[in-house]
Simulated assay, not measured.
Amino acid sequence: MGDTGISVDAQARRGLWVGLGWMALSMGSFIGMSIGSRELAANLSIRQVLFFRALVGLFVIALFMRSLWPEIRQMRQFRLQLIRNTVHFTAQYFWTIGVVLMPLASVFALEFTMPVWVAFFAWAILHERPTRARLLAVLGGFLGVLVIVRPGTGIVDPAAGLVLIAAMGYGLSLVLVKLLTRQNSPGVIVAWMILIQLPLGLVAALTDWRPVHIADLPWMILAGAGALSAHYCMAQALRRLDASVAIPVDFLRVPLAAIVGYLFYHEAIDIWVFAGAAIILFSNLRALRAERVR
């Protein structure tokens, strides 16, 4: 009996850390996608950026289509797949506008108002009961974001409102992914994302098409592969973690984006970024410790 308890506890700990590993890969992929998208948008329209991201994803998915096809043709939760990807495509469009027009750290910071929506949709749709530790992690992460961006000191931008709308869409999308993982593997969720969003992107791109050059190819690959990897890793993480645990960890994307923005685009960075990151990290570590005990 005691050995069984120890085995279950060890399995739970392993699942937690594996989930966190997938979250780390997801964060790196999202940042890579943002760099590729910004570089592409220097020559192409934002609608083309969304289309080419999905097109690159199609080539990657094609390599695994033989193994994924038996599950894809079952079309499990297809209506939910359509809803999730329509919401996600719209959110991506607004988010990409923010990536092009605003500093990366500001975009990711505004995006992380998303946990408020995740908590709401997780309660309304998944019936997840938010524990005190998780709520404190969300609040601590949000406080860290406020320390980084210091509202009223230069972050005001017309694109900010679009990023906030995107955050709400991403929050709903993530909760729907959690729901989809009950009947679909992460690979099939990502495959449906490409199969649904590719035609949506093509229709949108044709309304604002610009010449494509060979120099755009590396950025297409980075943006497309980053998008595919980010969502696959996020789906894997959400199979092992509650949405309200995974999202506070994802707050670490903000200081990472600030560093990338400084190194690649000479965007201003100061001590407040690291102060906010410390608050985010401390909040997440406390939540993870409480989660392990629970």
Rank of each mutant, 00 (worst) to 15 (best):
W123P: 00
R182E: 15
S185I: 04
P130E: 13
V188K: 05
S173W: 05
A160N: 04
L172D: 08
G171V: 09
A191T: 14
L146N: 06
V145H: 03
I125D: 04
R134Y: 02
R132Q: 12
V118C: 03
R150L: 00
W117Y: 14
V116Q: 10
G171I: 05
R182G: 13
A191G: 09
A133H: 13
R132M: 06
L139A: 14
A133P: 04
T181V: 06
T181E: 09
V156A: 11
L164R: 12
P186I: 03
A159M: 08
V138P: 00
T153V: 03
R150M: 00
G161H: 15
N184E: 07
L162M: 10
V177D: 03
A137T: 01
A166R: 05
G154V: 04
D157S: 13
V116C: 08
L176H: 12
L176G: 08
A191I: 09
G171P: 01
G152Q: 05
I189H: 10
V138E: 02
G152N: 03
G141M: 05
I165N: 02
A124D: 03
I125W: 05
R129G: 00
L164V: 08
A191V: 13
I194N: 03
Q183N: 15
W123I: 10
I148V: 14
V116I: 11
S185H: 06
L172V: 08
V147G: 11
A122C: 10
L143R: 15
G171K: 04
F121D: 00
L164K: 11
Q183R: 12
R182W: 06
T181I: 00
G169C: 10
A159D: 04
Y170P: 01
R129H: 05
R134Q: 13
V163Y: 11
V177M: 13
F121E: 00
Y170D: 09
G152E: 07
P130C: 12
V147W: 12
L136K: 14
V177R: 02
I165E: 08
G141I: 07
A133F: 08
G140N: 13
S173P: 02
P158V: 07
L126N: 02
V147C: 09
L126Q: 02
G161D: 14
L136E: 12
A166E: 12
G187H: 04
G169E: 05
V156Q: 15
V118M: 02
R134T: 00
L174D: 14
G140R: 14
V118G: 04
F121G: 00
V188F: 02
G161F: 14
P158Y: 15
K178H: 12
V138L: 04
A160W: 06
I165M: 09
L126M: 06
A167R: 07
V138K: 10
L136I: 09
R150F: 00
T153H: 14
A191N: 09
K178Y: 08
G152F: 01
I148K: 15
R182H: 14
F121W: 02
E128H: 06
V163G: 01
L135A: 11
V145M: 12
F121Y: 03
G140C: 07
I155L: 14
W117I: 03
G152C: 00
